[in-house]
């Protein structure tokens, strides 16, 4: 995405009109990325708001020639990652005090819902690189750069995510269909 140098400079100076213009241009990218990790518009918008807040806090570090789209993408992924981890901790704490057993999804429901539920159940450390790689179509190198991890670390996380997902889906499929999910090779 080409962004006007002057726009970046003006936004760095704190001009509200330039900041608004910058947000308008970057918001579709931020929303698309956040949509990978959340299922409701409210969650996506909250994550996007926080991403732009963090982005403008660090805007002094951005040079006009920098890849601003790359910057905001990294910030967005990190915001989503932090929020997912926080949410998971809160849910774990809530479940300790839950009196009745947790409702289980109907067995062998729609395949999309099954996969989605299995993905949502993954820890954020595995889920974020998985969705960036498989749904966003990023390479391992790009995921590593975006999350501030080494490539080998990303490969390990993807491998673990696939293993966990395969086990989760295996247990939710009817016996006749078990064994359909196979482990892919790393690209």
């Amino acid at each position: 995405m080409e962004l006007d140098r002057e726009l970046i400079v003006r936004a760095r100076r704190g001009e509200a009109a330039a900041q608004e213009e910058l947000v308008s241009r970057l918001a579709p990218l931020v929303f698309r990325l956040a949509s990978r990790f959340y299922r409701s518009r409210e969650d996506v918008e909250d994550a996007a708001q926080e991403a732009f807040s963090r982005f403008f806090l660090k805007i002094e570090q951005i040079r006009p020639d920098d890849n601003v789209s790359g910057w905001i993408s990294r910030v967005t992924v990190n915001v989503c990652y932090d929020r997912l981890r926080k949410l998971r901790r809160e849910r774990s704490a809530m479940e300790e005090f839950r009196a009745e057993p947790r409702a289980r999804p109907a067995p062998w429901s729609d395949a999309y819902d099954d996969v989605r539920a299995a993905v949502d159940n993954l820890d954020a450390r595995l889920r974020v690189p998985l969705l960036l790689k498989e749904i966003e179509g990023l390479s391992v190198k790009e995921v590593a750069a975006m999350m501030g991890l080494s490539q080998s670390n990303v490969k390990i996380r993807l491998y673990r995510a696939r293993k966990k997902l395969a086990v989760a889906l295996e247990s939710r499929q009817p016996p006749a269909l078990r064994g359909d999910v196979t482990e892919g090779t790393e690209s």
Partner: peptide, 12 residues
């Protein structure tokens, strides 16, 4: 999800 028309103003 797509940002609505007022999102940029609210974010700033």
């Amino acid at each position: 999800f797509e940002p609505d028309a007022d999102f940029a103003r609210r974010a700033v």
